[in-house]
Every structure is written in structure tokens, then in C-alpha cells.
Nucleic acid binder design. Structure first.
Lengths: 202, 202
DNA sequence: TGCCCACTATACAGATCGGTATACTTTCGT
DNA sequence: ACGAAAGTATACCGATCTGTATAGTGGGCA
């Protein structure tokens, strides 16, 4: 469960930081294809020359956008998990849903950036694809680890833990899209409650 | 629970049908922003003049694409539900998940077109937005109706039915994205199993 | 016959796309 | 004092974007 670092493909000069900050805001708000490099350059107060000197291509900006968001989320979630005692894995599972609710509340209502990016990109050969798939795999791994601790010593063993982990994953992803689409209010609270039932009932 | 018709904004001539068929295939495979009208015209063997004579704008093609897909899904699901006796609401709930699995299997692995479109569009003022939100609201209504029949006569009553419906919705949406992202195999089967537990255990 | 309709063919408009080129300035470490 | 790094300003490239204009073809119908 390492912090998912990646080689520093980009020299993060002050201008590059402004470019990335503007790109993150614009990409998340309007989508990746809908935002051009000219707009990113204008919004960040940087010339296109500088932008391309730092990032080389728009694709690379997209990769940095998603990788940065991924890492911020892992740090955010890690902090929330560390606040729960290690001996209470069930409480840590619930803390994941609480963290998602808090994260979503401060990020706005455009949903999960990875899901959105995946919808736009599609092509598995795109350099941003591993970042997207990586975060989801990491989340499933996290649920699997926690579920293994919850079910430790139970009769059903590993199969039960994997089943529980996937059920938690479904609830969590479902809450992400329900939040983005505004299907019903407080989806993370609902998902958390269903997760609690899974944990106590099984 | 009506079939969600909409006024015929477009005269569906043979050429228009070919345009829409090509647009559906291209939009779903590559995303909406990534596909231009020139490509749609070329792939459908129709001139841009004819395309604009029929649809007026790309936006309208997008609306027809999503509305058509929405209706096909409702018809498909309706057929599956009709195959289950009305007196067995729990079995009908499970039939929804079975239908989604079958639908996804024949549509490919690019996930839910509504979720993907929402990720690209974002702006609630877009004319396609009501179609997207409408399908999700319709699905929640469906689950709510079925949950009400399942819980009929129970002590918890309407609140319990709404809670169950939202839990089913979370599992279903979660399975949709898990399928699209390929997080783990057979997400619809997993979601169905968890739904069954919710139905029998509560 | 004459008209409407669906459609083809081609060209173009204006804007924006991702990306590059030239020339100059500022800042900073040695 | 000097050079490298990082930046600005501006102009440009070919391609593609949504959308429009002009002109013409073929069939069905009154």
C-alpha cells in the first residue's frame, strides 16, 4: 500500500504549478476534451511556449492532473484512516465512506474525476489510463485488506473477505456516481449505513 | 412508469436513421466530444448538408442518441421484468441486475452511456441533461416501487422501502462503473448477490 | 407537367484545436 | 561579468471544429 509515486516527468517550476492548478480546475469543471491548451495558458497567466516547455503535450498535463488528484486523495484518505485505531477495522471501513463524503463536499458536485476521465478517454492505450485504473485497483486493495482484518478468524475466511470487499467497492462507486448525478441526497451517508449493515450482519 | 416518450423533434428519414446509427456507435465507442460531425457524416454515408437538414445541430444528435438509448434500455428491461410474475417483487429486483448484465454483455465494456455522457457534458443547462437525469430517476423510481412491494406489510413501512431502494440503486450504479472500469470480474453477478442478501435478510 | 422532398456534391466560413518558431527579458548562481 | 534557466510576447502552422452556402439529382405524387 505504497503512496503511488511516479517519476518526476515534469519540472515543477512556479509557472508549471500555475498551469497545473488551472488545468485541474478547468478539467474537473468542464471535462478534458472541452478545455483547450490556449484556455489553460490564459487562465494560468502563462504563455503557451512556457506551457509546452514544461509539459511537452496536453496529454502530459492530463496525466499530471489525474496523478496529482490521485495522490491528494490517497493522502487525504490516509489521514482519515490514521485517525482510527488499527484494532478497529470495521470503523476504518466506515471512515472511508466518511472521507469520501468530506472529499466530495469540498470538491463540488461533479463527481469522481477518475470516472469522468475514463468516460472521456476510453482508450486503454492512453498514458492516463494506468492512473485511473490504478486508483480503482488501490481502492479495491484497501477494501480487501480491511475486509480481511474484519473477517479474521471467521469461518468463511478469504472468500468471505473478498466478497465483502467487492460489496463495499460497489457501494462506494455507486455513491460516487449517485453524488455526481444527484440521484438522491446524501449518497455517502446511505452507502455508509449499508456498509455498516454488511459489517455487523456478516 | 410510462415509456418516456418525447416529441419527434427530428423527421426520421432513412438518411437520418443512418446518421443516428453511426452517431450511436461512434459516441459510445469514443465519447461525444471526440467525434465530429464530419466523421458521423462520412461513416453514415450522408452529406453534412443532409445531416444538418435533419438534426439542425450536433447537440440535437447527442440528445437523440441518449434518448434512443434510454428508450431501448427501458424496453429491454421491461421485457425482462414482464417475464417474472408480478407477485414476486424480490425476483423482479434480481431480474433488473440480470438484465443489466445481459445488456452490458451485448453492449461492450464501455460502461453506462448516461454516466459517460454526464461526465463529458457537466453543464445542467445542456439539452441532453434531462435525458440523463431522467433515466437515473426512472431507475430509482423502479427500485422504489419494487422495494415497496417487497416490504409491503412490514413494520418499518415506507421508510424501509426507500432505504432498500436506494441501497439497490447504489449497488446497481456501482456495478455499472465497476463493469466499465473493469475493477473486478462479473460485477453484476456480485451486485445481484448482495441485492439478494438485502432482500432476504431485511 | 410541375412541384415538393430527400438527398448528393462541393466549397467555404470563422473559430479553435494541439503544437512550434523567433526574439527578447528577467533572475540567479558562480 | 557571464551563462543557464525560466519566463514573456507574438506570430504562425496545418488540421479540425461546428455550421452554412450554392447548385444539382432523382423519385413520388397531384
Amino acid at each position: 500500500m505504497k503512496p503511488a509515486e511516479h517519476p518526476p516527468r515534469v519540472r515543477m517550476t512556479p509557472a508549471a504549478r500555475r498551469v497545473l492548478a488551472a488545468a485541474e480546475r478547468l478539467f474537473y469543471a468542464h471535462g478534458i476534451h472541452a478545455v483547450g491548451v490556449d484556455l489553460i495558458a490564459a487562465e494560468s497567466g502563462v504563455t503557451k511556449k512556457t506551457l509546452y516547455d514544461r509539459f511537452g503535450s496536453k496529454e502530459q498535463i492530463v496525466v499530471e492532473y489525474l496523478a496529482g488528484r490521485d495522490e491528494r486523495w490517497r493522502v487525504f484518505l490516509g489521514g482519515r484512516l490514521d485517525a482510527v485505531p488499527e484494532g478497529e477495522p470495521a470503523a476504518r471501513v466506515l471512515a472511508v465512506f466518511d472521507a469520501s463524503r468530506a472529499w466530495a463536499a469540498e470538491q463540488g458536485s461533479r463527481g469522481c474525476a477518475m470516472i469522468n476521465a475514463h468516460a472521456e478517454i476510453g482508450d486503454p492505450a492512453h498514458p492516463a489510463y494506468p492512473v485511473i485504473a490504478g486508483q480503482k485497483a488501490w481502492m479495491l486493495d484497501l477494501f480487501t485488506t480491511l475486509a480481511g482484518q474484519v473477517e479474521a478468524g471467521d469461518a468463511d475466511g478469504v472468500e468471505g473477505a473478498e466478497r465483502l470487499a467487492r460489496a463495499l467497492m460497489l457501494l462506494h462507486e455507486g455513491a460516487l456516481v449517485a453524488h455526481g448525478l444527484g440521484v438522491f441526497p446524501e449518497p455517502f451517508a446511505r452507502a455508509r449505513e449499508e456498509a455498516r449493515r454488511l459489517l455487523t450482519g456478516g
